[in-house]
């Protein structure tokens, strides 16, 4: 049961579920492939025929704009056919289990499913129950994993600061509910990042997070001291029901990324955010749109990374050229 299901019997990447078990070389190979796809977006002809004749299903049990769209663009640039299925219209609301839904779609002879689900482990579960020729790519499950997001963030960092061993990276905000934070920690560790810091109030830090090899700060100014990269997490307002923070105002006062706070970091610090942004709640507009921000670059890298993952999994050659 605990065997890594991502790698098939032939040693190929069969599914893309989480970065925890993924070998470092494979992760770096994906980043390099993604880099080769980046220039590509600026060409006149944006399509390559790598996945012609293949079908990709965006199976989203939870709403998403950014992730779904970038997966769709990525698949289309690779000449695959794309079908979008959003949870609202899907039969799971009528009591059909997710496995039934997947089996039904499989019978239509589809190759790859991008799965997003609100429960941790959903993509893993589906991957364990599909035949070998069907591939599952995790588009984010519960609080567990969002591997393409972490990969695109690594790419964004690597383009500007390639020596991970010498970097200090701060992840700020609601780690408790964040699959992005978990995948980010896995990815940064795998690449040998010098120091990973978590900055958050105690109520939003899961127990035992230190065991994952991160340093925890509750004071934002101290935590940001001399960091090279800041990853801001979205404050998931809908999940604060249990009074995890007293008020948005106090949260911003203590953990909002303002221009003044940014002064603590290195002069060439990168500011990242997986989106969607709550302006004025976790980050000041002037910072989100400022010189240090690489937020829009993250989005365009998202397409390249997803192209790389799909190419690796669904076959074809590994680079655009």
């Amino acid at each position: 049961m605990s065997r890594d299901i991502q790698i098939g019997a032939d040693g190929r990447l069969n599914h893309f579920i989480s970065l925890e078990e993924l070998p470092r070389e494979l992760m770096e190979e994906l980043l390099t492939t993604a880099e080769s796809f980046i220039d590509f977006a600026t060409r006149n002809t944006k399509k390559v025929p790598l996945l012609r004749g293949k079908t990709v299903v965006n199976l989203f049990f939870e709403p998403s704009t950014r992730t779904r769209t970038t997966f769709e663009i990525a698949a289309k640039r690779l000449s695959a056919d794309v079908i979008n299925m959003q949870s609202d219209g899907m039969s799971t609301t009528k009591g059909e289990t997710i496995l039934d839904t997947v089996k039904t779609l499989q019978a239509m002879h589809t190759d790859t499913f991008i799965v997003r689900h609100s429960f941790s482990g959903a993509a893993d579960l589906i991957a364990r129950h599909v035949p070998e020729h069907v591939h599952i790519i995790n588009g984010g499950d519960g609080r567990y994993s969002h591997p393409t997001q972490a990969l695109l963030d690594m790419l964004t960092i690597r383009q500007r600061k390639p020596l991970f061993e010498s970097l200090s990276v701060a992840i700020v905000g609601d780690v408790l509910h964040s699959r992005v934070a978990r995948s980010e920690i896995s990815a940064l560790k795998k690449l040998g990042t010098g120091e990973i810091r978590i900055i958050s109030p105690r109520t939003l830090i899961p127990t035992g997070l230190e065991d994952l090899g991160v340093r925890i700060f509750t004071d934002m100014d101290r935590g940001l001291k001399d960091v090279d990269v800041i990853v801001m997490l979205r404050l998931q307002l809908e999940r604060m029901e249990g009074q995890l923070i007293p008020s948005e105002r106090e949260y911003y006062q203590c953990y909002g990324l303002s221009e003044a706070r940014l002064e603590n970091a290195k002069p060439d610090v990168l500011v990242m955010h997986p989106g969607p942004i709550n302006r004025g709640l976790e980050i000041a507009s002037s910072v989100a749109d400022g010189d240090h921000s690489v937020i829009l670059s993250q989005v365009s890298n998202g397409v390249a990374v997803r192209m790389a993952v799909m190419t690796k999994i669904m076959g074809g050659s590994s680079t655009a050229n």
Binding site: S120, Y144, L212
Partner: peptide, 12 residues
Amino acid sequence: EGEMSTRLGLSA
């Protein structure tokens, strides 16, 4: 609530 709940993102 411990290392595994944190790693797997399961409510603890």
